[in-house]
Amino acid sequence: MTQSRIRRKHYIPLESNPEVFTDLIHALGVDESLSFQDVYSLDDPDILSLLPRPVLGLVLAFPAVEDYDKIIEEDKKARPNAYTGKGEDEPVIWFEQTIGNACGLYGLLHCICNEPARKYIKPGSAIGKVLEACVPLDPTARALVLEASEEVEHAHAHAGKSGSTVAPLPEDDVEHHYVAFVTSSDQSGQVYEMDGVKQGPLKTNVSLKEGEDLLSESGKQLIRAFIEREHGQKFTFSLMALVKSE
């Protein structure tokens, strides 16, 4: 995976597993009514109908082959000035990834720290305290707050070891990368691609209409386009949806 950010720490990579992600958000302090669930198809209406709606956020895992480093460089050229947004007035809350092999954590955080999932964070919880401290800060200062959270680190360490496959070492090179898709907090329905190794939150060309969610047709088209761009016909992708399950 790209080394576009300074890595002061390394975490055990998270398995792309909804149970692992769900257990981690609960350990961090998200209400137990929220969970991650696999999205097995973007095309079969019967399979999609089994998923609780609305979808509050999406996390896509994909193989970050050499081409992805080129995409990161293209993003730098297109947006030479890195994002510096802060405060409650920003449409989304974005975290710069400075912890190695923790892209799953950042994808998860981008889902739960943005609306509408944010209201399910318990006050005083591990992520509640991090979020309260981070919102007023710019991305560089936010990164330091997140790195310093022992509660987040301990919860992530447990999650990293709890998957069904043998966990890699924190310093191992990992082929897969996670990116999240969330909607803005300003009621516009604007969808953002959230990747901690890019220059900041990326405003997509998709805005959801009233009553739509991230797996409505325009949202599905956005995911399909992302997968197509990443040569999805050759590689395996996995998609998880954050939903209210109770």
Rank of each mutant, 00 (worst) to 15 (best):
T2H: 00
Q3T: 02
Q3E: 06
Q3N: 07
Q3H: 02
R5T: 15
R7K: 14
R8I: 05
R8M: 12
K9P: 01
H10L: 04
H10K: 07
Y11H: 13
Y11G: 00
I12C: 10
I12F: 05
I12K: 08
P13Y: 05
P13I: 05
L14F: 14
E15F: 07
S16H: 08
S16K: 03
S16Q: 04
N17R: 08
N17C: 13
E19L: 14
E19F: 07
T22Y: 09
T22W: 12
T22N: 12
D23M: 13
D23C: 15
H26P: 11
A27C: 08
A27D: 15
A27Q: 14
A27Y: 06
A27N: 10
L28A: 08
L28Q: 06
G29S: 02
V30Q: 08
D31E: 14
E32H: 12
S33D: 15
L34H: 07
L34G: 09
L34N: 08
L34A: 07
S35Y: 06
F36T: 14
F36A: 11
F36D: 09
F36S: 13
Q37Y: 03
Q37R: 15
D38E: 14
Y40A: 15
Y40L: 14
D43K: 13
D44R: 03
D46F: 04
I47K: 11
L48H: 10
L48G: 10
S49M: 12
L50S: 07
L51D: 12
L51R: 14
P52L: 08
P52F: 12
R53A: 09
R53T: 13
P54F: 12
V55C: 14
V55I: 15
G57E: 10
V59F: 01
A61H: 14
A61V: 10
P63H: 00
P63A: 06
A64E: 00
V65L: 11
V65R: 10
V65A: 05
E66S: 14
E66K: 15
D67I: 11
Y68D: 14
Y68C: 00
K70H: 02
E74A: 08
E74G: 01
K76L: 11
K76E: 12
K77E: 03
K77D: 00
A78L: 10
R79G: 01
P80C: 03
Y83S: 12
Y83G: 03
T84A: 02
T84M: 04
T84K: 04
T84F: 00
G85Y: 03
G85M: 06
K86E: 02
K86V: 01
G87L: 04
G87Y: 02
E88G: 00
D89K: 12
D89R: 09
D89W: 00
E90A: 12
I93S: 00
I93C: 02
F95D: 10
E96K: 15
E96H: 10
Q97Y: 09
Q97S: 06
Q97W: 09
Q97I: 06
T98V: 15
T98Q: 13
I99N: 07
G100D: 11
N101W: 03
N101R: 06
N101K: 01
A102Y: 05
A102H: 04
C103E: 07
G104D: 10
L105E: 06
L105W: 00
Y106F: 15
Y106D: 05
G107V: 01
G107E: 01
L109E: 03
H110Y: 01
C111N: 10
I112R: 00
C113Y: 01
C113N: 05
E115I: 04
P116Y: 07
A117M: 00
A117R: 03
R118P: 02
K119S: 14
I121R: 09
I121P: 09
K122Y: 04
